[in-house]
Amino acid sequence: MSETEKNSRAGGPGRLLVAVYALFAVAATGRSTVQILTRFEEAPLAYALSALAAVVYIVATVGLARAGRTSYRVAVACCSLELVGVVAVGLFTLLVPQAFPDDTVWSLFGKGYGFVPLVLPVLGLLWLRRSHPRAARSTESAGSPAERG
């Protein structure tokens, strides 16, 4: 196994997380593109936020899939931004529903997507915490009990 594969956060449960992020990246990109190209004037704020969600999902997917400290920081930033976005847009859609005449990925806390957009960044941040580059290094350097013994 190469050093990159060993340090990648995309293995094990991380592989499923990356796949879900990639799926949401494709879905949000497609949805926001159609919304912006066909009826942007109906709800510019909502559709712009859909596009922002798409960008966040794309960058988060890459950050989660790649090894390294920079990718780790990018993934943490994206998952954090996503969590804040889902909560803020969710609250906004409850308080000002007329601003969201059409569902977006984050509207109503991701209700149209089974609330996965609300849970996904929490799972992402938990996975990132578990697979922090420093934690991986200290585990590798400790070795097995037989190697230390």
Rank of each mutant, 00 (worst) to 15 (best):
S144H: 14
V76F: 03
T61V: 09
L125H: 11
P145I: 02
F40G: 14
L52T: 13
A60S: 05
V56Q: 02
G12N: 03
R69I: 03
D103R: 15
E5A: 15
V86N: 04
R66L: 11
L126K: 05
E42I: 10
E147S: 15
I58M: 11
P44M: 10
C78T: 09
A146Y: 15
L23W: 12
G149S: 14
R39N: 06
T38G: 02
L81I: 08
L118A: 08
A60W: 00
T33R: 05
G90T: 05
S8D: 05
A75M: 06
G14I: 01
R129L: 14
A53R: 02
L95N: 08
G112A: 05
A19N: 03
R9E: 04
T70G: 11
A43T: 04
L126N: 06
H132S: 12
C78A: 12
Q35G: 02
G124L: 02
G68H: 10
F24D: 01
D103Q: 15
G63D: 04
G11C: 08
S71D: 11
A46Y: 04
S50E: 08
L81K: 07
Y21C: 00
Y72A: 00
V34N: 04
G143K: 14
V59H: 08
A88Q: 01
T61D: 07
A28C: 12
I36C: 01
G12E: 04
V55A: 14
F100C: 03
E140Y: 09
R69F: 11
A77R: 02
S71C: 07
L108W: 03
W106F: 15
R66M: 07
L37N: 08
L45F: 10
A136D: 09
